[in-house]
Amino acid sequence: MTTTAFGRRRSHRPNAVVNMALGLAGIAGLLLVWELVTRTGIIDPRFLPPASEVLVRFASMLRDLQFWREVGETMTSWAIGLAIAVVAGTIAGFAIGSSRFLERATRSTIEFLRPIPSVALIPLAVLLFGTKMQSSLLLIVYASFWQVLIQVIYGTLDVDPVANETARSYRLGRLQRIRHVVWPTTLPYLITGIRLAASVALILAITAELIIGTPGLGKAISDSQSGGDVVGVYAYILATGLIGVLVNLVARLVERRTLAWHTSIRSELAL
């Protein structure tokens, strides 16, 4: 008992601090190596400019309205695409998951459509929408929809038969069982699906801008590249990376906040 309490106390707070310190040290080390290999000429600065130059450019970009407009464009198509995918994936997932018949009828179709990489739809997107935002949306929605759909189907299939029988024995109707049993069971899966979809949506937003040329950070990267501005390319890449980290952090935070009971159960089981 005392050992557990002791072990727990040791392994919680200080570990987080140590982890953070290690993480920061890792980043600092990486930047240092980057700076060194470019300054010493091991890598040609025409392909990889020194870290300090990229960071300085990045800092000045942060004060540039144009940069924030591009961030806004990328994040707008990200948010709209993600929202459409989440709503559609949730509704379709519940419908498929709560009907044996639909589940069996759609399984092979899903298995066929899901592995199609979203980028394969680029010609179709260009054909339909040109370089408008809808092109980005098509790719984003297609890629993130499956993430949500699959998770929601898993969730609805994971409903505990004992919980369901309990609800039935207390005469809860079909809708009440969905609201009080199926929905809470599926929620952790849905949140995981949203977190995965959020990352995928960002990747596809940048990809679409980069290749199709819809306005946003991706287009800024390709514009810098064709303008011969290598430092700019790296500064923009850094920006997209940071946005990716941020999206993931927020998603995890939301996950932890909304599913206190779920994580508690998991930690109970783990003990």
Binding site: D160, V162, T166, S169, Y170, R171, G173, Q176, H180, W261
Partner: peptide, 27 residues
């Protein structure tokens, strides 16, 4: 009313004890 053997799975973990007891009445 039925009390199942698997009490751990028969109670809903996403609801407080009170809400669990009240749910059949609520419905």
């Amino acid at each position: 009313a039925v009390v199942f053997q698997e009490y751990g799975r028969s109670l809903f973990p996403w609801m407080s004890v009170e809400a669990n007891v009240e749910l059949p009445l609520k419905s």
